[in-house]
Every structure is written in structure tokens, then in C-alpha cells.
């Protein structure tokens, strides 16, 4: 246990240092541009799994949180020229609030109904933003990046680094939850809410907590996207593809371990980036659909689940 912890923190530090070095050593912008998207999906998938994996509440509203992150940034930037970090912090706060509301929804609905409600929530929020002229309405809004601050050489590099920090933050939180009593409580309520409640687990409080943490992280992950694209419009910011991609990544990686969503996000994210560049974004969505169906049917526990099964088999073989 202890040694694991040391490995984890050293790994996280090495990851951040490597990212920082990259921003210094690589001059071409493209790797950052592509890598940013993958980092963003890692945050989304890890954050999604806190609720979807541990607690078993399948949230199809990732795009609602992501989009609100984008528009929180847009709004603050337009109204006050707020710096990036303020945009992200505010987005996290907005996401936490939305998560709180979502958590209360779990009081009234479970299973499929919860999932359908999250889709509904997404469209309602998207439509409201579409009708909000100040942030550009349906046509969208152009944003001019401010000059980049030291020590970064370019804005994209800075966004890349910031998103990497969010990755570390999300993973630290998710890992903490998995290994603590919170994770055990969420797992219990996923298996059986009534039995959990009767074993002393404060199910509502834990669900709300998971929703708040998950929501805050997803919203924060969306905030830098405004400056990344220098443009925002409701139909892309709230695109259902974010919800389904995130879900697919978590399922492909497997939600039984905090590393699952990371693996899934890297795999599917990279594939999607390659496909979008080399063929077209349509084929990209096709692959997303096929992968989702394949994994849900053939490997419901994801890659992590497959790995565990292989390991268990081998262990049995040895005995």
C-alpha cells in the first residue's frame, strides 16, 4: 500500500515535469494541439467514472457540464477579461453547483430514468444558452486570446500544461475516493442502495458528493476549451458526442480501477484524433459507436476487467 503511494506520487510528478519540458523543447504547435484534446478527455473520463463507475449512476450529461465550463469561461472573459485560472476556478464552482442539483435528482430517479434525465438536462441547458444573446447565441462567439504569460512560449502550450495539471488533479481525487471509505460507500450503494442505507451508509450524501466532485472536474475541463478554440457555439460545446465519448472511454478502459478511464481515454482519444485528421470526423463517430457497442457487448468490465480476469486465471493455474 505504502509503496504504491510513493510510486503514484513520483509518477504524477514525473508526468508533470515531462509535460513542462515538452512545452519548452518542442517548438511545433501541433502536438500540443492534438495532445490537449486527449488530456481533456482523460479529465472528463476520470471525472465521469467517479459517479458512473463507483456509484453506478450513468450520467449522459457530460456535455452539459463541459458546455457550461466553456460558457462560464466565455462569460467571464467577455464581462471582465478574466484570466484563465479564474475561468477554470469559476467553472469548477458552477460544475459543483450543477452536480449538487444532479445529486438531488438521484433522490427521485435511478437507473435508466436518471440517465434519461441527464440527457434532458443537457438539451434544456443548451437551448437556454442558445437563446442567450450576450454570449453569442446560436451563431457562437469569437474570442481573442490575451498575450501568453511567462514561463510559456505559446498559448496552446500553456493550455496543454494547464489541462495536464487538471489530469493530475482528477486522478488524485479519483484515486483517493477509490481507496477511501467514500469509495467503499459508493460501491455499496451501487450494489444495493437500500442495503447500503441499512448498513449505515449515508447514500444521499455520498451520491451528492460524487456528483459535486465529478461535476466540478468536468466543468473545469471544459473551461480552457474556449481559449483553445478561440471560439464557442452551443451546438459544439454541448454536443452529445462529449457525453457518449466520455462514457465509451470509461467503459472501454473499465471503471473498476481509477486507471481504467485513463487507458480508455488515451486509446479512444488517440484513435479519434488520428481518424479525424486522416479520414473524417464522421468515421470518427462511427468508430465511437462501434467501439461502444463492441465493448458493452463483449467486455462489459472494460480492459481493466479483461486484465483482471486473465490475471485471476493465471493465479488459478498456478495453484
Amino acid at each position: 500500500m505504502k509503496r504504491n503511494g510513493v510510486f503514484f506520487w513520483v509518477g504524477a510528478a514525473v508526468f508533470l515535469i515531462a509535460i513542462a519540458l515538452m512545452t519548452k523543447l518542442i517548438t511545433n504547435e501541433y502536438p500540443f494541439f492534438a495532445g490537449y484534446v486527449i488530456l481533456q478527455f482523460i479529465v472528463l473520463a476520470v471525472a465521469w467514472s467517479i459517479l458512473g463507475g463507483h456509484a453506478g449512476y450513468v450520467n449522459f450529461g457530460t456535455s452539459a457540464f463541459f458546455g457550461m465550463g466553456v460558457y462560464t469561461a466565455v462569460f467571464l472573459f467577455k464581462v471582465a477579461g478574466a484570466p484563465l485560472l479564474v475561468q477554470i476556478a469559476a467553472a469548477a464552482a458552477v460544475g459543483a453547483l450543477m452536480g449538487f442539483a444532479l445529486g438531488l435528482l438521484t433522490l427521485r430517479m435511478q437507473g435508466i430514468f436518471f440517465s434519461i434525465a441527464t440527457i434532458a438536462l443537457t438539451i434544456v441547458i443548451e437551448t437556454s444558452i442558445t437563446n442567450w444573446r450576450y454570449v453569442g447565441g446560436a451563431a457562437g462567439i469569437q474570442l481573442q486570446r490575451p498575450p501568453v504569460t511567462w514561463p510559456f512560449s505559446g498559448y496552446v502550450q500553456m493550455l496543454f500544461f494547464v489541462q495536464a495539471v487538471l489530469v493530475v488533479l482528477a486522478v488524485v481525487v479519483s484515486r483517493y475516493i477509490q481507496n477511501s471509505w467514500i469509495g467503499r460507500g459508493l460501491q455499496a450503494l451501487r450494489d444495493d442502495e437500500l442495503a447500503a442505507e441499512c448498513t449505515g451508509v449515508p447514500t444521499l450524501r455520498l451520491k451528492v458528493l460524487a456528483c459535486v466532485v465529478s461535476g466540478a472536474l468536468m466543468c473545469a475541463a471544459g473551461a480552457p476549451a474556449a481559449m483553445y478554440l478561440q471560439y464557442a457555439d452551443p451546438s459544439s460545446a454541448f454536443n452529445l458526442n462529449y457525453s457518449v465519448s466520455t462514457l465509451a472511454m470509461s467503459l472501454i478502459g473499465g471503471t473498476a480501477h481509477w486507471a481504467g478511464p485513463i487507458v480508455g481515454a488515451i486509446l479512444l482519444g488517440t484513435t479519434q484524433q488520428l481518424l479525424t485528421v486522416t479520414i473524417s470526423s464522421e468515421v470518427n463517430v462511427l468508430v465511437l459507436g462501434v467501439m461502444l457497442v463492441l465493448f458493452v457487448v463483449a467486455a462489459p468490465e472494460g480492459l481493466i476487467g479483461l486484465l483482471r480476469r486473465v490475471r485471476d486465471k493465471r493465479r488459478e493455474g498456478k495453484q
Binding site: G56, F60, G111, S115, A248, E282, L286, G289, M291, V293
Partner: peptide, 19 residues
């Protein structure tokens, strides 16, 4: 949890049909 994984399954199908 047939329902919850089923909804993911049908979303995948929907995306495939769209494309």
C-alpha cells in the same frame, strides 16, 4: 444492470446509424 448498459449499447447503435 441490463438497463444501464443497454442504454449505452443503444446509444452506440444510434451513432452508427447516424453516420
Amino acid at each position: 444492470d441490463a438497463g444501464v448498459r443497454g442504454i449505452a449499447f443503444f446509444f452506440g447503435i444510434a451513432f452508427i446509424i447516424e453516420v
